[in-house]
Simulated scan of single mutants.
Amino acid sequence: MATLYIVATPIGNLDDFSPRAVEVLKSVSYIACEDTRSSGILLKEYGIDTPTFSFHQHNEHQKVDYLVQLLDANQPVALISDAGMPGISDPGFLAVREAYQYGHKVTVIPGPDAATTAVVASGLPCDRYVYEGFLPHKKGRQKRLKQLSAEERTIIFYESPYRVIKLLEELNEHFDPGQWAAVCRELTKKFEEVVRGSLSELLTEFESRDELKGEFVIVVAPKGYDE
């Protein structure tokens, strides 16, 4: 029985990488990376020269067999994504499931992730929240938004800079435009920004900007919440 390590990596600031994570990545036989080039920057920063192979959303169904073969050969493997916790909007679930099914051990090395960072930074209720991640681009999107409009927990969405205006427009359409929310951008990085206000105010604010950059997390307060 070998161990599959699920290792969280910094979501922006490389100083957030834990000593335990570095130790594990140096000790395993292989590191499965969402993108070996992106991960290479982090690994070089910490002097980690463990062999790597790619493991991303387009090849994970093929590469998971290789990953299990390594574990079967008693070679521990670590899985990392480009940023944050593997399995949260990134490959990871399939590897964990297969490792368990073949009798191996799974150990998670915790660390930063954008969802919990954003919900705490938002100043909105975080005792009960639901992680929605990226909404489907087409099929089922409007139906899902309508369902979420009745949610009594704080909701966390991920979105790209190219679609964040569209998401804010849809939230104003399906939710109460006066509902409290926060747009979090570039978390832990140099240009980190958390903008709070009503959904209508946030739409106006980001529509007025000439350019939108960075990764976005939109946090929407529970229905009926008022400050």
Rank of each mutant, 00 (worst) to 15 (best):
I88R: 05
I88G: 05
I88M: 13
I88N: 04
P91W: 00
P91H: 01
P91A: 00
P91Q: 06
G92A: 11
G92C: 08
F93A: 14
F93K: 07
L94P: 08
A95V: 09
A95F: 00
V96Y: 04
V96Q: 04
R97W: 02
R97C: 00
R97P: 05
E98N: 10
A99Y: 01
A99P: 07
Y100I: 13
Y100H: 14
Q101R: 15
Y102I: 02
Y102P: 01
Y102K: 15
G103K: 04
G103N: 09
G103A: 09
K105L: 03
V106G: 00
V106E: 00
I109P: 01
P110Y: 10
G111Q: 06
P112E: 04
D113L: 02
A114E: 03
A114C: 13
A115W: 04
A115P: 07
A115L: 07
T116Q: 12
T116G: 06
T116V: 15
T117E: 06
T117W: 03
A118P: 12
A118E: 09
V120C: 10
A121P: 15
A121H: 15
A121D: 15
A121N: 14
S122Y: 11
G123M: 13
G123L: 08
L124D: 07
L124F: 05
P125T: 11
P125A: 10
C126V: 08
D127S: 09
Y129W: 14
V130C: 12
Y131K: 07
Y131I: 13
Y131F: 15
Y131S: 09
Y131H: 12
Y131R: 12
E132S: 01
L135C: 11
L135D: 09
L135W: 08
H137A: 09
H137K: 11
H137M: 02
K138S: 13
K139S: 11
K139Q: 01
K139W: 02
G140E: 05
Q142E: 15
Q142W: 07
R144K: 13
R144W: 06
L145Q: 15
K146I: 07
L148H: 10
L148M: 11
L148D: 13
S149K: 00
S149G: 07
A150W: 08
E151M: 10
E151T: 08
E152N: 14
E152I: 11
E152G: 14
R153Y: 02
R153P: 00
T154D: 03
I155C: 13
I156Y: 03
I156R: 07
F157M: 14
Y158S: 04
E159C: 03
E159K: 08
S160C: 05
S160Q: 06
P161Q: 02
Y162L: 12
Y162W: 06
Y162D: 05
R163W: 02
V164K: 09
V164I: 12
I165W: 01
I165V: 14
K166L: 10
K166C: 04
L167F: 08
L167D: 04
L168M: 15
L168R: 11
E169H: 10
E169L: 01
E169I: 00
E170I: 01
E170T: 05
L171H: 04
L171V: 04
L171T: 02
N172F: 10
H174N: 15
F175I: 06
D176V: 07
D176T: 08
P177I: 09
P177C: 09
W180P: 02
W180R: 14
W180M: 12
A181T: 13
A181N: 15
A182N: 08
A182C: 10
A182K: 12
